[in-house]
């Protein structure tokens, strides 16, 4: 029987290396895709991928599966690290552990669930206008703020803010429906 994330985390706390390998096999592909999309640099993506799972190995005891989703947490940490690499800023590990309780509105522990969610996320993004989608991608994959997006696209700041807010409302509706 397939072990749950929570059970594997418990085994990692007891220093079971095979439990870490199992979690790596479950989520490395998701993180690798995310990192390569952000960094567009294979070597840097591989370094961060290894680093994120090594952090999980060292700090598993501080992760409480009852308070959040492991893949969500891993995705947040991986994205933060990649954006920080782009911006040459180093967040501290403590900062990451304390600030990233992540509750994902779906169970992602098996490949089928991940596949179904992929369809929902793609559908939710397709519902956005091309400008909304571009703004969300600049924010999520390039780590740009409202004013940085306005400056990059040449659109007025107010337009960018309205565009992203309505895109986020739409994503929220579609992802939760």
């Amino acid at each position: 029987m397939r072990a749950s994330d929570a059970a594997l985390i418990q085994k990692i706390v007891q220093r079971d290396e095979s439990a870490l390998a199992a979690l790596y096999d479950r989520y490395a592909s998701l993180l690798s895709s995310l990192l390569n999309r952000i960094l567009r640099d294979t070597q840097a993506s591989e370094e961060i991928l290894q680093d994120v799972f090594y952090q999980l190995w060292r700090n598993a005891a501080q992760f409480d599966p009852a308070r959040g989703s492991l893949p969500g947490w891993l995705a947040v940490i991986a994205r933060n690290r990649a954006i920080s690499r782009l911006r040459r800023h180093n967040p501290s590990e403590g900062e990451e552990l304390l600030e990233t309780t992540v509750i994902v509105p779906a169970n992602l522990e098996n490949a089928l669930a991940q596949q179904q969610l992929l369809g929902r996320v793609k559908g939710a993004l397709e519902n956005l206008s091309s400008e909304q989608r571009a703004a969300i991608e600049l924010a999520y994959f390039e780590g740009l703020t409202h004013s940085e997006i306005a400056s990059k696209t040449g659109d007025p700041l107010g337009t960018v803010k309205t565009r992203i807010r309505s895109a986020v409302e739409s994503l929220k509706r579609n992802l939760l429906s």
């Binding site: 290396e17 870490l20 390998a21 790596y24 096999d25 490395a28 592909s29 998701l30 993180l31 690798s32 895709s33 995310l34 390569n36 999309r37 993506s45 591989e46 991928l49 290894q50 799972f53 090594y54 959040g68 989703s69 893949p71 969500g72 995705a75 947040v76 991986a78 994205r79 990233t100 309780t101 992540v102 509750i103 994902v104 509105p105 779906a106 991940q114 969610l117 992929l118 996320v121 793609k122 993004l125 969300i136 999520y140 994959f141 994503l171 929220k172 992802l175 939760l176």
Partner: peptide
């Protein structure tokens, strides 16, 4: 954070090479 993290699924799929897993272990 959980909702926004789902956007990770929209990234084109890139499988990590086996060497990363070996180095990690």
């Amino acid at each position: 954070r959980g909702r926004i993290a789902l956007l990770a699924f929209s990234a084109p799929r890139v499988e990590p090479p086996a060497a990363v897993r070996e180095r990690l272990m």
